[in-house]
Every structure is written in structure tokens, then in C-alpha cells.
Design a protein around this nucleic acid. Structure first.
Lengths: 240, 240
DNA sequence: TAGTGGTCTAGACCACGAA
DNA sequence: TCGTGGTCTAGACCACTAA
């Protein structure tokens, strides 16, 4: 008998089969055949339903594709749609080096607009964080972020803000998994122009973001991007 | 025995169970319990694996949620992400009445840029369609759309363009199911300003779109939106 | 303790595709 | 004809939740 299954009784069989197939197939060219279900039954000494459970997961994931009567094959990668990115991730994808300079970081009382957007009460404590974001050393964006202090105890304390907002939120399992962004085209005012090192009246892209983690609104922000340096890229799929 | 299963032998059992549960549950409040798996086994006289196959589909769909040890319940609707919209659909969602005025509609030879974007050869025939789009009677956008004539025989002929591009493409089963958009903030030049009835130098949002249906690039377009009238709204989800 | 979903078995018959 | 995935059965034991 093949000693393929881990001795660790805690490892579920369908998970072991799934990960075995994934390792076989993850760097495969689309169209490459995966082992047949009955092959895996023989190899692992499990029931066919167990193998199917393992393969089902990979099919749902988009890694495999079943063709009745022929077999199971590596699927062509699905076209991806845009996901939630932090500024740092966005710049890194563009091949630029992100930087962050804190201009302001303090506790404030939520005004009516921020309170409504954050789904908290007017006057509740919020963390207001204003940053100048650079890419490859040059100003790219100005961001005003508001966070509900209630859900982020100790965020403001330890002598400084975290190096990365989204990574800090991720560690607290509060990174936004869903955002609602609104973009508009406008021109820079004098103060913005000075910080971004552009001319007053130069075109900028303004973004308002509401970021949601689970059921909680965890971030509200207003950002300005230099129109001469920043293009917004979005990939959208279709509704079902 | 319950005569719940259809007499129609062609109807698969797991499909019948699935649709039965869906009908019970589709207009239910989140948290409402679905029948237990063993209840459905008894009611339909099928194996539990068959019931689980039916429920799996509804769980994947996001309609149901399993809670081990407790039961299966109507899930709260997932937050939706942005999908591909036509100008008309976009305006309608905003509660405005869309209009379209064709400024130009003719066959052209693809230039290098359009050819590359459409994944065709330079010099291949393309349909170039230029439209002024109004919302509630006022100019909103200027759109230059390029379509590969190869995939759209007879598109230009019948004495006029179709009233709606995306509906015409949908009828040919060529409506884009995936798009790649690039937005930038800029200012209007003299010609654009005249058509959009704004001042030269006023802020505008420029969009470049590549629309893909199946494996074919079916649309390439450049659009200008008035910055004083148009905000882009996007909802994004997370990567897995 | 009773009921739930999660996992798993060891078979079976079917329609379909390729040789 | 043979191998494939699709469907289906009639059980089983487990961990967990709620009463």
C-alpha cells in the first residue's frame, strides 16, 4: 500500500488528497491532465467520494476543470477582478517604491460626515491620520484616514503609528475585505499643490473610501492623487 | 412515502432537492433555519450525500450558511462588487435619463494602438463609433468606441447604429463579461469642451476600456466624463 | 442526551469521449 | 470497448451545540 497519507491523524484525508493534487498541478500548463479520480482512490486508499470532495475544492477554486468523459485538467486562469489594495501594495505592483510621511496623527471627535460614514455616533473618538505618500521619492498622494478608536484600542499609543495601516489592521483581523470607493476629477488647491509639489489648479484624482471588515466599517478616507502620475486601473467581471 | 420527487426521470434528484430548498428559503430573513439534512433525506427518500450535494450548491452560491452542531441557515447577502455596466445602465442607476447622439460611425482601418488593444492586425477593419452621451438632457460624456468588424458582421449596415451597443452585443452573445478600465484625471481641450459644454481646461475624467467576451476582445473605447457631473463608484472585494 | 453538520466508506449504474 | 466524470445509495463515526 502507498504510504502517502500522513501519519498525522489530525490531517483530514480530503485535505491531504487536495494538497497532493495541488502540488502536482499548481505550476502546470492549462490543459495538463490531473490524475483521474480512480487513480487517486487507488493511490491513497480512500473512497471515491473523498477524492471528489478534494477535487471539488480545486474546481471551485478555479485551478481544475472537469470534462465529462475525458478527465480533469488544469484550467486556464480565470480573468481576475480588482481587489482591495493598500497604497503600498498598489505602488509595489507598479514597480515603484512607496514611502509614507505622517503629517498628523491624533485622536479627534467624529464630525457628522465621518460619523455617518464610519457608522458611529457624532463625537465618538476617531483616529485621524494624515499622510503624504511618495512613490520613487516623489509625492504621489495625500491621504486623510479616519479610524474608529473603539475597534482599535492602543492604536495611537506606542510612540508612533504602524509602518503600514493595512498590515496593522490585518494583524488585528480588521483589514477591509470590501471597500466602496468614489473617484472624481478635480484640480488641486494651494495647500494640496504645495505638498504634492504640483501647480495650483493642476488636475488631481480624488478618492473617498469606506472600508469594511466583516460587519464593521473600519476605515474612512479621503485621498488625492496627482493626475500627472497616477492612473486608476480596475478590472471588473460580470454579474451572475 | 412523500411524492415530492418529480416523476420526470430527467430531473436530477440533487437538483430537485436544491430547488425545493431554494424555494423554501429564497425570500427568507438571514438567520432563518433551513431544513436539516436528515429531514430532507426522510422527505425525499434520498441518500444524505445527495442532500449534501444539493445544499453545497446553495452554500457556494451564498444563499445558505452551515454552522456545525447547529444547523444550516439563510446567510446574510454577500456584499456585491462592481460589475460591467453600459453608460445607459450607469446613468439609469443614478436616476438619470441617458441619451445618445452619434457624431461619427464608420468603417476604418485599425491603427497600431487600436489593433494591439483589440488583438487584431494593423489595417484590419474596425468600426469607429463616436457618441455624445447626455444625462437628463445635459452633456455628460464623449465616447469613441472601436469594434472589430470581423466579429460583428452587418453591424454598420442597416441604415443606422443600434440604439444600445451593449444590448446589441448581448443579442450576439458578445457583450463584455470582463473589462479592464484605466481612469485618469485631466483637463478638457477646446474641442472636447465645446461638445461637453464646459470651459476649456475644466477637469474631466478620462477612461480607456478594453472589453472582453469569452476569449475575444470585443470593444476598445476612450471616454471623457465631465468632472463636475460624474463620479466613479466602485465596490471591490478581497482576494482569496 | 439528542440533533446537527463534517467526514468517510465501498460499492453501483449512467452518459459520454476516444480509440 | 474502456476509461472518464456525474449521480446515487445506505450506512458509519466524529465533534460540536443546545436543552
Amino acid at each position: 500500500m502507498d504510504h502517502v497519507l500522513s501519519e498525522d491523524r489530525r490531517a483530514l484525508k480530503h485535505v491531504q488528497v487536495r494538497e497532493y493534487v495541488r502540488s502536482l498541478v499548481s505550476d502546470g500548463v492549462p490543459g495538463t491532465p490531473a490524475p483521474s479520480e480512480r487513480e487517486l482512490v487507488a493511490k491513497f486508499g480512500v473512497a471515491r467520494m473523498t477524492v471528489r470532495q478534494a477535487m471539488d475544492a480545486l474546481v471551485i477554486e478555479g485551478l481544475l476543470e472537469r470534462v465529462p468523459g475525458r478527465g480533469t485538467f488544469v484550467a486556464r486562469p480565470r480573468r481576475t477582478v480588482s481587489t482591495v489594495l493598500s497604497f503600498s501594495e498598489d505602488m509595489t505592483r507598479r514597480g515603484m517604491a512607496p514611502e509614507s510621511h505622517t503629517l498628523l496623527a491624533r485622536r479627534e471627535q467624529a464630525g457628522p460626515g465621518v460619523a455617518r460614514a464610519l457608522d458611529i455616533l457624532e463625537g465618538d473618538a476617531v483616529i485621524h491620520w494624515r499622510r503624504l505618500r511618495r512613490a520613487d521619492g516623489e509625492p504621489m498622494s495625500l491621504q486623510d484616514t479616519y479610524l474608529p478608536e473603539l475597534h482599535l484600542p492602543g492604536f495611537l499609543e506606542p510612540g508612533g503609528m504602524p509602518p503600514s495601516l493595512y498590515e496593522e489592521l490585518a494583524q488585528r483581523r480588521l483589514r477591509p475585505t470590501w471597500v466602496e470607493d468614489s473617484y472624481s476629477s478635480d484640480v488641486a488647491n494651494a495647500a494640496e499643490a504645495a505638498l504634492l509639489e504640483i501647480e495650483q489648479g493642476a488636475p488631481v484624482l480624488r478618492r473617498q473610501r469606506r472600508g469594511v471588515a466583516g460587519e464593521k466599517v473600519i476605515e474612512v478616507s479621503r485621498s488625492i492623487y496627482r493626475g500627472d502620475r497616477y492612473n486608476l486601473h480596475v478590472q471588473l467581471g460580470q454579474a451572475d
